[in-house]
Simulated scan of single mutants.
Amino acid sequence: MKPPEVLVVGAGIAGLSVAGELQRRGVSVQVVEQAEALRVPTAGIVLHPNALACLDHLRGALDHQGSRIERNVAMDRDGSETVVEWKSVWPELPLAVHRRTLGKLLLSQLDPDTILWSTAPLKLIQEPEGVRVTFNTGDSETYQVVVGADGINSWTRHMVDPDAQPRFTGHTFIRTTVLPVTPSSSAEWRTWRHGPHTFGLMPIGQGRMAVFFQIAASEPLRSELPDPLEVLRNGCGDMPGEVRRFVDSMRLDEQLVTRSAFALTTSRFVAGRVVLIGDAAHAVSPATTQGGGLAVEDAAVLGEEIGAHGCRPEALAAFERRRQARVNAFQAIATQQVTLMEAVAARRVPGPEGLDDSAPIKPPVDASAWYRRLYGPLLAVP
Rank of each mutant, 00 (worst) to 15 (best):
I361W: 09
P91Q: 06
S28L: 07
T265I: 06
L179V: 07
L55V: 04
R25N: 01
E224N: 15
P94E: 11
G237Q: 14
P350C: 02
P91D: 11
G278A: 09
Q290W: 07
A43T: 08
G195Q: 08
E314K: 11
G291C: 01
R348K: 07
H197Y: 14
P49I: 06
G151L: 02
T82M: 11
G170N: 12
R273K: 06
A280N: 06
T101E: 11
P196G: 09
L22D: 00
G293F: 01
Q206E: 12
G79C: 11
P377L: 14
P352T: 04
G12F: 06
Q30C: 06
L122E: 14
I125D: 14
Q206M: 09
D63E: 14
D63L: 14
G291V: 05
L110A: 08
D356F: 04
L256Q: 03
I115T: 12
K104Q: 14
A271S: 11
V133T: 07
D150Q: 11
L232Q: 02
P112D: 14
V274W: 00
L256S: 00
N234S: 11
R71T: 08
P162D: 15
A61W: 02
W370K: 05
M159H: 14
A318P: 00
G15C: 04
A37H: 14
D227L: 05
